[in-house]
């Protein structure tokens, strides 16, 4: 019985894990395959022939590339905004004691625990009641994205700061570094990986957001909004080219950072 149990835990669990990984990748393979698809008719979303035309003419469908540019602009600005505000907040929460910390922690946690549809709807209610429907557009999308990215930045940077050894800073001060020298030469470089991953997370959240954006976008079209629009009519295969390209860029980033990490460890 025990040996059977051991065999089960050794092989079946690993097997199930592998099956789940395959399940995770099936839609990805479909997206890649569809990016080379030559559809018989534009109305049907089916796999027909092979072509590289989608890759050579990614901007052919009207509005696709401009929506991509909008998404990049929103993503970059929202990332900068949320990362700056969130990093300051994380420092305040970890390094400083003050009244209201508990409340601050709850208010930071709540946006992550709210359904996106509520976040989007409540912002819409606010914008429309204070400034009217005409205010909706790039600015309101940006405000909303900074809001929901902020909490994720705080949590990520805070985790890094909490795991950090403050005796290193004290050592720097003991060695006559001023407070600002200690901060820029010791603290900041140590926290930076946390800030960087928070920024990447914020960009990914902003770039891929649909639900909140949908409520607050007015006439502005981001890439997810574009896909939503064409999903109701006929779907250009180029969205799969963009999907595949996003996947490749992200994987490349992961590989590069992993290589850099391994190399750095070897130097040590």
């Amino acid at each position: 019985m025990v040996r059977l149990g051991r065999w089960v835990s050794d092989h079946v669990v690993a097997g199930v894990g592998l099956l789940v990984l395959i399940y995770l990748f099936v839609p990805m393979f479909v997206v890649i395959a569809m990016s080379f698809n030559d559809p018989a008719s534009r109305a049907a979303y089916t796999l027909d022939g092979f072509t590289v035309r989608n890759w050579t003419n990614p901007c052919e469908p009207e509005g696709l590339c401009s929506s991509l540019v909008t998404s990049l602009q929103v993503g970059i600005l929202a990332t900068v905004g949320a990362t700056v505000l969130g990093t300051l907040m994380a420092f305040a929460l970890v390094r400083h004691r003050f009244r209201g910390r508990g409340t601050a922690n709850v208010v930071i946690f709540l946006p992550m625990a709210s359904p996106e549809v509520v976040l989007g709807a409540s912002l819409l209610a606010l914008f429309v009641s204070t400034a009217g429907g005409g205010v909706l557009g790039f600015g309101t999308i940006l405000i909303a994205h900074i809001m929901f990215c902020l909490s994720f930045v705080v949590v990520t940077v805070r985790a890094r700061l909490q795991g950090m050894d403050t005796s290193l800073e004290q050592a720097a001060m003991d060695l006559y570094a001023t407070e600002s020298q200690a901060f820029w030469k010791v603290t900041f470089p140590l926290v930076f990986p946390g800030i960087l991953s928070a920024a990447l997370l914020a960009f990914a959240l902003s770039f891929d957001d649909f639900i909140v954006t949908n409520f607050n976008s007015g006439q502005t079209v981001t890439f997810p909004m574009y896909v939503w629009g064409v999903a109701q009519r006929d779907i250009p295969m180029q969205i799969n080219v963009i999907g595949t390209a996003m996947f490749l860029v992200a994987v490349l980033l992961v590989v590069v950072s992993e290589v850099l990490r391994v190399r750095r460890e070897r130097v040590r």
Binding site: F25, P27, F223, P224, N240, I242, G243, F247, V254
Partner: peptide, 10 residues
């Protein structure tokens, strides 16, 4: 990795 692609495209 699969979640690096757009939610809607997926």
């Amino acid at each position: 990795a699969p979640f690096f692609t757009s939610f809607l495209v997926r």
